[in-house]
Design a binder for these strands. Structure first.
Length: 576
RNA sequence: CGGGGCGUAGCGUAGUGGCUAGCGCGCCUGCUUUGGGAGCAGGAGACCGGGAGUUCGAAUCUCCCCGCCCCGACCA
């Protein structure tokens, strides 16, 4: 039983000044967590109980799916990460340290290497596969900008699983098992979520999905088709392109266009000069970037921006991507800022990528690669050719679903889980092979599956809180019922105590507010802030032999005969 | 890393060169109070983020450093 009189808990009346998002504010105010350093938090008893509840639910679902739990150190040697290149690729996000002999160590940001090596050390036959193992461990990433309290920290708790299979079919099955286990887990956690297509990213692999908890403070943006259910991270959104049906355009025609460095000014000039009804979407924007050491141009319709995240996600080999700066223009005199066109790209040494809307045969108004000059009727396939289409244009609400062509909606969310088919990258790098039926060594294929455990605490808080405090789903809450004794006599305290003990006997988790010195108002406010799903008040109504039962989420109140209290409370709590 | 903001007691804050750094919450003692963050009285708690400087005098001005928050970039 949790007793408020002795619990290490001090609720705060005011919002902490450094907290912006609801989960952060409330978890601090309600005494669940305290900040230790930027992006690093300590868990007080209530918070730690909540965190462990989530761990327990995850563990139960992982075990039920037949996955085995292991545990690795957080402190890891350099060598394995050297072999997979991540010692360098991970860059400054990796916490590195040296031991007294000067050897390099790191604090694990994720543990692919360790899992791979563990399997390599123990298994060597195809008969041992498939295998899925997982751990729940603190992870460390020296984020450039930790933010939103618990949502994005530098030290955080993650559940990560890895599957090991001989072939792609096996991997697909393991992936599906994890996917189902995740669905069960997040359902039990009482979360709203969407499963969306994601980019496998630089890790390679064929299939990748994210579990996103919709929430306005989320960092991820995704699209959802309410008609067919298609859902994708914006990075992975596929553009729906109408087939090109227009006729052939007249020959290219250069025209003077002084002082039109922006699309708006260009459209204005077009309509003044040529009449007609030109729109931003009739122009072709040439966005120049440096992709590592290569100059690239991304062609998008004039009414779209380039989304750098999407572009980066679709240029997996590129590590350093940035927009052209003045110095880059100076180095390439053929490129005139504001007047770039794709016609001479080859001569100018540009690699050309185009948004899928720039279909072959379509013609555009674009820059003439000369100051104060644009050109009309520039036709894809006739006047320029591209190196490749690319999904890099910003996604807007109302864009068409690639599956059923219905306008999609856009929403923000917190990423709470990510599953993907890793493939053989790590197994290859660390030489994890097993002998197949023919006695030949084969490289194992892997899947990787993560759940942000501490982040889930915050995500649930974000989704379930209200103006007055937290409001947990029962399985996650630090207790099932919060019993408050009020009054100055001993009677309510004694009755509350008895009630608590009896409810505990029935297997309920009870928090008892047995503080003698706190006023009723303080106790009620605290109960609402802390967010245990049921609140029982033993006080004034005792005079009529009654207690009061409240539902935190709905605010419903009900008076219950003391004689029936145990049964009624028990059935209210366990009935849903 | 770029832009913006902040740093005064456990928390929230006032204080633009002048007296002993003020207030609310919380904490301690006593009395009163007990169904919506109670009242009265008394009390503890701050090297004003750190360092250097300017000045008769610095929380306050200057410089450097550190830390933190927000937006962006980045992020298995």
């Amino acid at each position: 039983m949790l007793r408020m009189s002795t619990l290490l808990l001090r609720t705060l009346r005011d919002d902490p000044a450094d907290a912006e998002v609801a989960s952060h504010r409330l978890l601090v105010r309600a005494g669940y967590v305290r900040r230790v350093a930027a992006g690093i938090y300590a868990w007080l008893p209530l918070g730690y109980i909540t965190l462990r509840n989530i761990e327990r639910i995850i563990r139960e679902e992982m075990d039920a799916a037949g996955f085995q739990e292991v545990h690795f150190p957080a402190l890891l040697p350099r060598e394995p990460y050297e072999k997979t290149d991540r010692w360098t690729v991970y860059g400054p996000d990796l916490f590195r340290l040296k031991d007294r002999r000067g050897n390099d160590y790191l604090l694990g940001p994720t543990h692919e290497e360790m899992f791979t090596l563990m399997v390599k050390g123990e298994y060597s036959s195809y008969k041992d596969l498939p295998l899925s193992i997982y751990q729940i461990q603190n992870k460390f990433r020296d984020e450039t900008r930790p933010r939103s309290g618990i949502i994005r920290g530098r030290e955080f708790v993650m559940k990560d699983s890895y599957s090991f299979d001989l072939d792609d079919e096996g991997l697909a099955i393991s992936y599906e098992k994890h996917r189902n286990a995740y669905i069960k887990t997040f359902n039990r956690l009482g979360m709203k979520y969407n499963i969306v297509s994601a980019m496998a990213g630089a890790m390679g692999g064929s299939r990748s999905e994210e579990f996103l908890a919709p929430c306005p403070t989320g960092e991820d943006t995704y699209v959802l088709c309410e008609s067919c259910g298609y859902a994708a991270n914006v990075e992975a959104m596929v553009t729906k392109v109408a087939e090109f049906t227009g006729g052939s355009a007249p020959a290219m025609e250069v025209f003077d266009s002084p002082n039109t460095p922006t699309i708006d000014s260009l459209v204005e000039l077009l309509n003044e000069t040529f009449g007609g009804n030109y729109q931003a979407s009739d122009t072709l924007k040439n966005v120049l970037l440096m992709a590592d050491d290569e100059a690239i141009s991304v062609l998008v319709p004039g009414d779209r921006e380039v989304d750098l995240k999407r572009l980066q996600a679709n240029l997996p080999g590129v590590t350093d991507l940035r927009l052209f700066e003045d110095a880059d223009f100076e180095k390439r005199p053929g490129l005139v800022k504001g007047y770039v066109g794709p016609q001479d790209a080859k001569a100018l040494g540009l690699t050309l990528y185009a948004d899928p809307r720039v279909v072959i045969g379509s013609s555009w108004v674009t820059g003439a690669n000369a100051r104060d000059k644009h050109v009309r009727f520039v036709t894809h396939g006739r006047d320029f050719t591209i190196d490749s289409f690319i999904e890099a244009a910003e996604v807007k609400a109302g864009d068409l679903c690639p599956v059923c062509a219905t306008p999609v909606v856009i929403d923000r969310a917190i990423e709470i889980g990510h599953i993907f088919q890793l493939g053989r990258k790590y197994a290859q790098a660390l030489d994890l092979t097993v002998l197949d039926k023919d006695g030949k060594p084969r490289v194992v294929t892997m899947g990787s599956y993560g759940i942000g455990v501490s982040r889930a605490v915050a995500a649930i808080a974000e989704q379930t809180h209200d103006e007055i405090g937290l409001s947990w789903p029962r399985e996650v809450a630090p207790a099932d019922v919060h019993i408050v004794a009020t009054g100055k006599e001993d009677l309510p305290f004694n009755e509350a105590e008895k009630l608590s003990l009896e409810l505990e006997k029935l297997g309920l988790r009870v928090m008892l507010d047995d503080r003698r010195d706190a006023s009723p108002g303080v106790k009620f406010k605290d109960a609402e802030l802390i967010g245990i799903p049921y609140i029982v008040i033993v006080g004034k109504a005792l005079a009529e032999g009654k207690i009061e039962l409240r539902v935190r989420k709905s605010g419903e109140k009900e008076e219950v005969e003391l004689s029936n209290a145990v049964a009624e409370i028990y059935s209210a709590i366990t009935s849903n």
